[in-house]
């Protein structure tokens, strides 16, 4: 709090969170989160529903106002007073569980809106960027469709493309497969896998333990508003050190999800 180590020490980190607290009314959801994410690292946040995974992501995107603590993005303190949140959000993409595509716009317009209105790209530049991304994720022929004509998996992939079109430095994925029918999950996970392979720094809240194990550089287990344990996936899933992690993983295993 007192020392402002903004430059040297944290410049290597894509994201650094220190002492982050967030309450909704009397209920404390995040009770002091400390987390550093290196460039190109993929962090998976796991934990029971209500453990604060989504809230943490929304805090990093400044969609929620934090009560205490600090967040640095590429060494820049983004939770300081007077920081332009719109400027921060250009660099931090977020994808929601419920897609939240704009229903009155075509797929292409969903993707080009922010690059045009926020980054000032021309219609042609934005359309080219959209075409490239939609093509890469197998959505080229959906360009002119409205979201309600798409399957859940396609909608979620469009939502990811919409966030990527801003060329973010950090992607936040908030349980992006939880609202999908099981057979549609794989397509979306493939997209994330590709992003990870290309070196995108990501913070992923997920219930897909198998996926987390495969794609994560590090897995963080959230419980009681804190990071109870963090470790590389192989270690966390096979020899969890925290009792709460063990209990959580046992329940998941019993449910046949791991």
């Amino acid at each position: 709090m007192t020392e402002h180590k903004t430059d040297r020490t944290s410049s290597a980190d894509a994201l650094r969170i220190q002492g982050l607290r967030k309450s909704f009314g009397a209920q404390e959801v995040l009770g002091g989160i400390d987390l550093s994410v290196a460039q190109h690292e993929v962090i998976c946040l796991i934990g029971a529903s209500g453990s604060g995974k989504s809230t943490l992501l929304r805090c990093v995107n400044l969609l929620e106002r934090i009560d205490a603590g600090s967040v640095w993005l590429d060494g820049q303190l983004i939770t300081a007073r007077g920081v332009d949140e719109n400027l921060v959000r250009r660099h931090v993409g977020i994808v929601f569980q419920s897609f939240n595509l704009f229903p009155h716009m075509t797929v292409e317009r969903n993707v080009t809106l922010a690059p045009m209105k926020v980054l000032g790209l021309s219609r042609e530049e934005a359309a080219a960027r959209a075409a490239e991304l939609l093509g890469r994720f197998g959505l080229a022929e959906k360009r002119a469709d409205y979201p309600d004509r798409l399957s859940g998996g396609q909608q979620q992939r469009v939502a990811i493309v919409r966030a990527l079109a801003m060329r973010p430095r950090l992607m936040l994925l908030d349980e992006v497969t939880s609202a999908l029918d099981p057979e549609l999950v794989a397509d979306v996970l493939d997209v994330i896998r590709e992003l990870a392979m290309r070196g995108m720094t990501m913070l992923i809240a997920t219930h897909e333990m198998g996926f987390a194990r495969e794609v994560a550089s590090r897995v963080c287990f959230l419980a009681d508003g804190q990071i109870a344990e963090q470790a590389p996936p192989a270690q966390l899933f096979s020899e969890p050190s925290d009792e709460r992690t063990r209990r959580f993983l046992r329940r998941i295993t019993d449910a046949g999800r791991l």
Partner: peptide, 23 residues
């Protein structure tokens, strides 16, 4: 959630209103 989606892309409050909410 439509507001959240618009703002999360960096659109200002007025742009969100104009392009996403009002239509």
């Amino acid at each position: 959630s439509q507001v959240a989606a618009a703002r999360s892309l960096g659109l200002s409050q007025s742009s969100s209103m104009r392009y996403v909410i009002l239509p």
